[in-house]
Amino acid sequence: MRYAQGGGLTAERQAFRERLRFEAAGRFAQGDESSVIAHDLRVSVRSVQRWRKAWSTDGVQALASKGPASLPLLSDALFTVLETELDKGPVAHGWPDQTWTLSRIKTLIGRRFHKTYTIQGVAALLKRHGWTCQVPARRAVERNEAAVAGWVKETWPQVEAPRRRSGRGWSSRTKPASR
């Protein structure tokens, strides 16, 4: 499985997939059918067919791992620089409040490093380096608890749709039979 923005299989998983391909090559030499090999190795028949074609054209070396599909756009050194920029806070970078969003971090990466990430790519980048989503733990200083309580008691009941009364309603099965 590959992931956006330079993710992909781990080195361990790449080695495992390579071992599967080499095992399939041995089975190709024995003359086994693709469907049997796919069933035994628990892979798709189409994958085995691709491997067989590569093996018949270029031999076993064609089935060797070619390494990661792509390298991350931000190296570990550049991510360290990004972390120092994030520590400065959003206000230092021109945003009006102290909230980092994925969109803002994407913009910061573009401005600072001239690299383009998707929103999902930024989320994967942060997760890969141990960052997590944060939700504010405290309420806004400006919050007026008395006004909130009054709104809940007075305004909300008027806005809320009336509820159906419990009890028996009328339907084709509950209507009294006409005589």
Rank of each mutant, 00 (worst) to 15 (best):
S35H: 06
V36Q: 11
V36D: 11
I37D: 01
A38S: 00
A38D: 06
H39N: 01
H39I: 03
D40Q: 14
L41R: 05
L41C: 05
R42E: 14
R42D: 12
V43P: 04
S44Y: 01
V45D: 15
V45T: 15
R46N: 14
R46V: 11
S47K: 05
S47E: 03
V48L: 05
V48Q: 01
Q49P: 02
R50K: 11
W51D: 07
W51I: 00
K53T: 09
A54R: 05
W55G: 02
W55K: 03
D58W: 02
D58G: 04
G59D: 02
Q61V: 03
Q61I: 03
A62V: 00
A64F: 05
A64T: 00
A64L: 07
P68L: 04
A69F: 14
A69M: 15
S70N: 09
L71Q: 13
L71K: 10
P72T: 01
P72V: 04
L73I: 03
L73V: 04
D76G: 14
F79G: 01
F79T: 03
T80F: 10
T80D: 14
V81G: 08
V81K: 14
V81W: 09
E83G: 04
D87A: 15
D87E: 12
D87F: 09
K88S: 11
K88H: 10
K88I: 09
G89V: 05
V91I: 14
V91P: 07
A92G: 15
G94F: 09
P96N: 11
D97W: 06
T99C: 11
T99N: 13
W100R: 03
T101H: 06
L102V: 07
L102S: 04
S103C: 06
S103Q: 09
K106E: 08
K106R: 15
T107S: 10
T107W: 04
L108R: 02
I109L: 05
I109Y: 03
G110E: 07
G110L: 02
G110M: 03
R111P: 01
R111S: 10
R112H: 07
F113R: 03
H114R: 13
H114M: 08
K115A: 08
Y117M: 07
Q120K: 01
V122I: 06
A123S: 13
L126Y: 05
L126D: 04
H129E: 02
H129Y: 06
H129D: 07
H129R: 11
G130P: 03
G130K: 08
G130Q: 07
W131D: 00
C133G: 10
Q134D: 13
A137H: 07
A137F: 01
R138I: 13
R138A: 13
A140V: 12
R143M: 12
R143Q: 11
R143W: 04
R143L: 14
N144V: 11
A146Q: 12
A147I: 09
A149V: 10
G150W: 13
G150F: 12
W151Q: 12
W151Y: 15
V152L: 15
K153E: 15
K153Q: 14
K153R: 13
E154H: 14
E154N: 11
T155D: 07
W156K: 09
W156M: 08
W156N: 06
P157Q: 06
E160N: 10
E160Y: 12
A161C: 12
R163C: 09
R164Y: 11
R164A: 13
R165G: 11
R165S: 11
G167E: 02
R168N: 13
W170A: 15
S172V: 12
